[in-house]
Simulated assay, not measured.
Amino acid sequence: MRWMETERLALVATFRQADPDAPTLCEGWTVRTLLGHLVQREHNPWARMLDTTARPVPGQERRLGALVATARTAAGYEALVQQFAAGTGPLNPMTWLGDGGQLLEYVVHHEDVRRGTGNKDPRTLPAGQLDALWKNLPLMARFTYRRCPVGVSIASPGRGTTAVHRAPSGRRPAAVVLAGDPVEVALCVSGRQRAANIEVTGSPENTAAFHAWAAGK
Results as ranks from 00 to 15, higher is better:
residue 139 L to F: 13
residue 132 A to I: 11
residue 147 R to A: 13
residue 130 L to E: 14
residue 95 T to Y: 04
residue 118 G to F: 12
residue 94 M to C: 07
residue 130 L to G: 01
residue 104 L to P: 00
residue 109 H to R: 00
residue 119 N to S: 11
residue 127 A to D: 14
residue 88 T to H: 05
residue 115 R to E: 05
residue 121 D to W: 13
residue 112 D to K: 05
residue 110 H to F: 08
residue 113 V to P: 03
residue 99 D to R: 00
residue 143 F to W: 14
residue 108 V to G: 01
residue 88 T to S: 15
residue 152 V to F: 08
residue 114 R to E: 01
residue 111 E to S: 05
residue 152 V to W: 00
residue 134 W to I: 01
residue 89 G to P: 06
residue 99 D to T: 02
residue 125 L to C: 10
residue 127 A to R: 13
residue 113 V to E: 03
residue 100 G to Q: 14
residue 121 D to A: 15
residue 143 F to D: 11
residue 116 G to M: 06
residue 123 R to I: 14
residue 127 A to I: 13
residue 106 Y to C: 04
residue 100 G to N: 09
residue 116 G to Q: 02
residue 139 L to R: 14
residue 118 G to A: 10
residue 114 R to G: 05
residue 108 V to T: 05
residue 113 V to N: 00
residue 117 T to F: 09
residue 96 W to C: 02
residue 103 L to G: 02
residue 115 R to I: 05
residue 142 R to G: 12
residue 108 V to L: 02
residue 147 R to E: 13
residue 142 R to N: 08
residue 89 G to R: 07
residue 142 R to Y: 04
residue 96 W to Y: 08
residue 91 L to S: 11
residue 125 L to I: 12
residue 144 T to V: 12
residue 105 E to L: 09
residue 106 Y to A: 12
residue 96 W to R: 08
residue 139 L to Q: 10
residue 148 C to R: 06
residue 103 L to Q: 04
residue 151 G to P: 03
residue 142 R to H: 09
residue 90 P to V: 08
residue 115 R to N: 07
residue 121 D to E: 15
residue 124 T to Y: 11
residue 118 G to S: 08
residue 134 W to S: 02
residue 122 P to H: 08
residue 146 R to Y: 06
residue 102 Q to R: 12
residue 138 P to T: 12
residue 145 Y to N: 00
residue 152 V to S: 06
residue 128 G to T: 14
residue 99 D to C: 04
residue 103 L to I: 12
residue 98 G to E: 01
residue 144 T to I: 08
residue 121 D to K: 15
residue 105 E to M: 08
residue 133 L to H: 03
residue 107 V to L: 11
residue 132 A to T: 13
residue 95 T to P: 01
residue 143 F to P: 03
residue 111 E to P: 03
residue 120 K to T: 15
residue 101 G to C: 02
residue 126 P to D: 14
residue 119 N to D: 15
residue 119 N to M: 10
residue 115 R to Y: 07
residue 150 V to F: 07
residue 148 C to K: 04
residue 94 M to K: 10
residue 102 Q to T: 08
residue 104 L to D: 04
residue 145 Y to E: 00
residue 135 K to W: 12
residue 133 L to W: 04
residue 120 K to S: 15
residue 101 G to D: 01
residue 132 A to K: 04
residue 141 A to I: 02
residue 125 L to Y: 12
residue 137 L to R: 03
residue 95 T to V: 02
residue 126 P to F: 10
residue 125 L to T: 10
residue 122 P to E: 09
residue 134 W to E: 01
residue 117 T to M: 08
residue 133 L to I: 06
residue 128 G to M: 13
residue 142 R to W: 01
residue 103 L to Y: 00
residue 91 L to V: 11
residue 123 R to T: 11
residue 152 V to G: 07
residue 142 R to C: 05
residue 114 R to S: 01
residue 132 A to S: 15
residue 136 N to Y: 10
residue 128 G to N: 14
residue 131 D to G: 09
residue 94 M to E: 02
residue 152 V to N: 06
residue 89 G to N: 11
residue 135 K to T: 13
residue 135 K to H: 13
residue 112 D to C: 06
residue 94 M to I: 07
residue 120 K to I: 14
residue 131 D to R: 10
residue 121 D to S: 10
residue 95 T to L: 05
residue 100 G to S: 14
residue 126 P to W: 10
residue 137 L to Q: 00
